Simulated assay, not measured.
Amino acid sequence: MQTLADLRKDYTRAELDEAHADADPLKLFERWLHEAVQAQVPEPNAMTLATVGEDGRPSTRVVLVKGFDARGIVWYTNYHSRKGRELAARPHAALQFHWVELERVVRIEGRVEPVSAEESDAYFASRPLASRLGAWASDQSQPIEGRGVLVRRAAEFGLKFGLNPPRPPHWGGYRLVPDAWEFWQGRPSRLHDRLAYRLQPGGVWMRQRLAP
């Protein structure tokens, strides 16, 4: 029987070198995300979000990126959830994308800020009705007696709001404003390619190769 210690894979799909890496990390991220979508990677927009509480204890969860541009990376959630409370206390976070099929990882770090109410309203209105009602029904991260609580609350809010539930005041978007990126491409013999970008004064990105 194969043990966990015996599980190994040699990475051979691609390489990442300075000659083919953009000076702007956002452009490289956009290209890699597009390639993940084109390759039909499952949930290419799924990312791990890491936050830290007031007690210094870290926590992670998977969320879905819903937009990105020069301002940063955007996702939406319940402000009263554990991640929301932790971001209120310590507004910095780390993100990680892992596209297993492409043997690629992207890590992003930076400060986090709420997106505007207008942005949150626009995205909320684009969601399926069931998801909009779910945002009202779920007191995210709070203990509940069973799934029936969620079903009952969703039905109650469905009767209350009909087809046009407004955005809950406790629900909206966050934007991580990057000051550090790392792009990892798996390579043979564990000699992986790692390119790190660090934001310098004046908005210039410094790029460095890191040892694997």
Rank of each mutant, 00 (worst) to 15 (best):
A36D: 11
A117N: 09
R190W: 09
E54V: 14
V74K: 01
G173T: 12
F157V: 15
R167F: 03
T60S: 13
W184Q: 09
A117F: 00
T60H: 00
F183R: 09
Y79N: 08
D6Y: 00
L191D: 06
V63N: 04
T60L: 06
L163K: 14
P42H: 06
G203R: 06
I73E: 00
R207K: 15
D55I: 01
L129T: 13
M1C: 05
T3Q: 11
E156Y: 00
E30Y: 00
E101F: 00
A137V: 12
A23E: 15
F97S: 06
E43Y: 02
L16M: 14
L95H: 03
V105P: 00
Q96R: 11
E119T: 14
L33R: 12
G148I: 11
Y123V: 09
N78G: 01
D193H: 10
P168D: 05
A117Y: 00
D22Y: 00
Q185S: 02
Q200I: 08
R31T: 14
D121Q: 14
Q140G: 03
K27D: 14
P25A: 04
L16V: 11
A50V: 13
E109T: 06
V204R: 13
G56S: 03
F97Y: 13
P178R: 05
A70G: 08
E109F: 00
R85H: 07
L195Q: 12
D24P: 05
H92D: 05
P91T: 06
V115M: 01
E30N: 13
E182S: 03
I73H: 00
W136I: 10
A180R: 15
P143G: 01
S81F: 03
R187V: 05
R90W: 03
P168E: 07
S189M: 12
R61Q: 06
A88S: 13
V112N: 01
V177E: 09
M47N: 02
G202I: 12
V41C: 10
F124K: 12
D179S: 11
T51L: 02
R90L: 10
Q2E: 12
A89L: 12
V115C: 02
R8G: 04
H92Q: 14
L199S: 02
V149H: 07
S189D: 15
G158D: 08
A154R: 15
L191I: 14
P169R: 08
A19M: 04
H34E: 15
R194G: 05
K83C: 05
R147W: 12
V100M: 04
L150S: 02
